[in-house]
């Protein structure tokens, strides 16, 4: 059993991160090649200045009109996306592991705080699921896959929470936690999670068209 744990916490972590990073790079390369071959006009309009203008405008909480029209959803969504990075990256247990492997360390969240933030992430996911059920225009667009995505993201957080508290099946819970975390990383380039890099690209293009050609704001 220890050998299996050594594998999922050792080589498998490397594999997951490599697939995650190389997968995204591969995706970007395919897009750039595709753009060069079929839609090279995109470069005539793409501008760094207006791309960044649009992306930053949309990063400021409650700056775009859209965010002010659906404040609850956006607030929860902002917090959720921030915590999605903050909790795993600044979790003490994770930093301890990185520290042991690479002698690197950085600021760590207090365990109790991280615990609360984890619950918030899961509650946000529950909110998204309920919203998919109850808001007609969202329900209309929702397919089974959208729930699968929510569950996949929820898994590492739920298992991490249960493992931290050592309620039951501790060993199995940690194993499930590690594997589900790696699953999320591996899936990012090949699923809708890729909006992590695609959204800035589509935003950049729309921002460039609005800035360069339309001379108007797009937020």
């Amino acid at each position: 059993m220890n050998a299996f744990i050594a594998f999922i916490m050792g080589p498998m972590v490397w594999i997951a991160f490599l697939i995650f990073i190389l997968g995204l790079i591969f995706k970007l390369v395919v897009i750039i090649k595709d753009v060069n071959a079929r839609e090279s006009y995109v470069y005539s309009y793409l501008s760094v200045k207006y791309s960044l203008r649009s992306i930053f405008a949309w990063l400021i909480p409650f700056f775009p009109q859209s965010t002010r029209q659906s404040p609850v959803f956006y607030a929860i969504s902002y917090i959720f996306h921030l915590l999605l990075f903050i909790v795993p990256v600044f979790l003490m247990s994770h930093i301890v592991l990185v520290n042991e492997a690479f002698q690197l360390s950085w600021f760590a969240l207090d365990d109790t705080l991280a615990d609360i933030l984890t619950v918030i992430v899961v509650l946000a996911l529950v909110f998204f699921a309920v919203r998919r059920q109850t808001v007609p225009e969202v329900k209309y667009l929702t397919s089974f896959n959208d729930y699968v995505l929510l569950i996949i993201v929820a898994l590492p957080f739920i298992t991490g929470f249960l493992a931290y508290h050592q309620f039951f099946f501790y060993r199995q819970m940690v194993i499930a936690h590690v594997i589900s975390g790696e699953l999320v990383l591996i899936l990012i380039p090949f699923s809708k999670f890729s909006h992590m890099v695609m959204a800035p690209l589509t935003r950049a293009y729309m921002g460039s068209e609005f800035g360069n050609v339309r001379h108007a704001k797009d937020w």
Partner: peptide, 29 residues
């Protein structure tokens, strides 16, 4: 091309576009 593909693939089905549309608003959402 890639633009079309990106638009179709990236949509997270969040429904926020609805608020923008005259047709949606005029037809009782």
């Amino acid at each position: 091309g890639p633009k079309f593909k990106a638009y179709v693939e990236t949509c997270m089905h969040c429904g926020l576009c609805a608020e923008a549309c005259l047709y949606f608003l005029s037809n009782d959402r």
